[in-house]
Computed example of a mutant assay.
Amino acid sequence: MHRRDFLRLSSAAAAYATACPFFFGQISKNLSELSASDFHAARRFLTTSQGRISHLDLGKGPAALFLHGFPLNSFQWRGVLPQLAKTHRCIAPDFLGLGYTEVAEGQEVTPQAQVAMLAELLDKLSIADVDIVANDSGGAVAQLFSVRYPHRVKSLLLTNCDTEPDSPPQAVATRVLWGTGDTIFSQQSPQYFHATVGNSLGYRLVPGAKLFFPEEMPSLIVEEAEFVWSL
């Protein structure tokens, strides 16, 4: 397949926590989507050896990691996070070289570097393992992460994304949700994943949906994530 290039607290705090439903991981149960102002208010930064990583950390419970596409950032998941944060601790980072993440001087931004960043980010957040939801180039990173750290990945929910012969995971429960209107990635990929991954949970086609459909159809992502996480 053709791969796309991946870019080379005080009293005031207490008052803010009352006003903002995302402060310290809390979230309103009635919120369906993060507005731009909500998103900016919820953003956090954590320093790793790769740089100062921008991320959202919402909700409580088992951890779920959301990996965005290129050239987007974690705002891609604004319609998904409020729903799934009701039952899970949802971590949505900005990749190196994208969004609000500040890359350390001389730091590479290759897929392998993204994998290393995610591992260190999870370590610093004291998260041992995760369920991963990913789109586009984030899906490639998710596969590489699961191959390198299979013990840290409980499941993968992949939407339209890259794949390579050496990256589909063999030991991780994997579900594929594929938009049929995508002109970037092959329409044979869902069948390839199903036949190649070691523990396939099958695939579902989304008629007419294009590459970044998770942003436009958050309820579908929520439905599929809840299905995978219930197994």
Rank of each mutant, 00 (worst) to 15 (best):
33 E>L: 12
36 A>P: 01
37 S>C: 03
37 S>M: 10
38 D>G: 11
38 D>N: 15
39 F>C: 01
41 A>I: 01
41 A>G: 04
42 A>Q: 05
42 A>E: 05
43 R>Y: 09
43 R>L: 15
43 R>T: 15
44 R>F: 00
44 R>C: 09
45 F>A: 02
45 F>S: 04
48 T>F: 04
48 T>Q: 00
49 S>D: 15
49 S>N: 14
51 G>Q: 02
51 G>P: 03
52 R>K: 15
52 R>A: 11
53 I>D: 08
54 S>D: 12
55 H>F: 15
55 H>G: 11
56 L>S: 10
56 L>W: 09
56 L>M: 10
58 L>E: 08
58 L>P: 05
58 L>K: 04
62 P>N: 09
67 L>Q: 08
67 L>W: 11
70 F>K: 07
72 L>V: 09
72 L>S: 14
72 L>T: 07
73 N>R: 13
74 S>V: 12
75 F>S: 14
76 Q>V: 09
78 R>Q: 13
78 R>K: 14
82 P>F: 03
83 Q>L: 10
85 A>H: 02
86 K>E: 13
88 H>G: 03
88 H>V: 00
90 C>E: 09
92 A>W: 11
92 A>H: 08
93 P>E: 01
95 F>D: 07
96 L>N: 03
96 L>I: 00
96 L>A: 03
96 L>P: 00
97 G>L: 03
97 G>P: 04
97 G>F: 02
97 G>E: 06
98 L>V: 10
99 G>A: 11
100 Y>P: 03
101 T>P: 13
101 T>R: 12
102 E>A: 11
102 E>M: 10
104 A>C: 07
105 E>P: 00
106 G>V: 12
106 G>Q: 09
106 G>R: 11
107 Q>C: 14
108 E>V: 08
109 V>F: 00
112 Q>M: 12
113 A>E: 08
113 A>T: 05
114 Q>C: 00
114 Q>Y: 02
114 Q>D: 06
116 A>Y: 02
117 M>E: 02
117 M>F: 08
117 M>S: 08
119 A>S: 14
120 E>M: 07
121 L>H: 01
123 D>K: 14
123 D>G: 11
124 K>L: 11
125 L>H: 02
126 S>W: 09
127 I>H: 01
129 D>S: 15
131 D>R: 10
131 D>C: 08
133 V>H: 10
134 A>G: 04
135 N>F: 00
136 D>V: 05
136 D>H: 05
138 G>A: 05
140 A>K: 07
140 A>M: 13
141 V>D: 02
142 A>G: 06
146 S>I: 02
146 S>F: 05
